[in-house]
Every structure is written in C-alpha cells, then in structure tokens.
Computed example of a mutant assay.
Amino acid sequence: MTASNELRLLPWSGPDDKPCYLSADDTSGYLSRLADSAEETQLGLGTELLAHAVEVLTDGVSDPEELRFLATDLTGALRDAVRIATSRGRRLNPTHYSHEGPSTHLI
C-alpha cells in the first residue's frame, strides 16, 4: 500500500486543473473511499463511452460535429484512466513487483 510519506493522487482535479492529493495513511477513511468510488464510476463511464465510440465509428454516417464531441468525451475518459493508473501505480508495493511483473505472493 501507500508508504506513510506518500500522497495519493485523487481521481479529480482542483482549481486550474491542478492535481489533488490525499495523505493515504488510512485507506478506509471517507475521502479514500470516495476516491475509490469516483475511480470506479470514471472507469465504468469510460467503458460505456468506448462501446459507444465503436458504434459511432462503424456506422459510417456520423457527421464531423458528432465525431468532435466523441473525441472530446474520449479525451476526458482517457485523461481519467491515465490519472487512475498513475495513482494506483504509485500505491503498489514495490517489493511485490519487479520489471518482470507481479510476484505470485499475496500481500
């Protein structure tokens, strides 16, 4: 889990799109659970958006404005997914992971 001197990157941004962080010593705290829920929601919406994108791109009749809106929504979903991956990557216990991938030991 997160070392006591590290901060958790939250799945939302603050003013001027600056990253927000949380001291994550207590992963069962209210804000940690809220962040977990927000990540789950963001990833679920990204999955739904991806399915919609496949439909739009295969229908062959989408106009440029619809494609621009789709690209904007996909950009936001990708930004969320990258932020979540970055946050989770920082919280991995490095002793259980190497350049070869995760170990088979349970934490």
Rank of each mutant, 00 (worst) to 15 (best):
P11Q: 05
L74N: 10
A53D: 02
L9C: 15
D17V: 00
S87R: 02
G76C: 09
S103R: 02
D26W: 06
G44D: 03
A51V: 04
A71D: 14
R83Y: 03
V54M: 05
R68T: 05
D73Q: 12
L74Y: 11
H99M: 02
T41A: 00
D26Y: 13
E40P: 04
L57P: 06
P19W: 05
S62C: 13
L43N: 05
Y21R: 06
R33N: 07
E65T: 10
P19Y: 02
A85C: 12
G14L: 12
V61S: 11
E100S: 10
E55H: 04
Y30K: 11
R83F: 01
L74Q: 11
E55P: 00
L31D: 15
A53E: 08
L57D: 05
T86Y: 13
N93L: 07
M1W: 14
C20E: 15
G76S: 14
G76Y: 12
N5D: 15
L106P: 11
A51H: 11
E6H: 14
F69Q: 09
G29R: 09
T41F: 07
L10A: 09
L34H: 04
E48G: 04
T95V: 01
H105P: 04
G29H: 13
A24K: 07
L70V: 04
L9W: 13
T41W: 05
V54P: 06
L45K: 02
W12S: 12
R91G: 12
V82I: 05
L10S: 04
S32A: 14
V54I: 06
E65N: 07
P11N: 06
A85P: 07
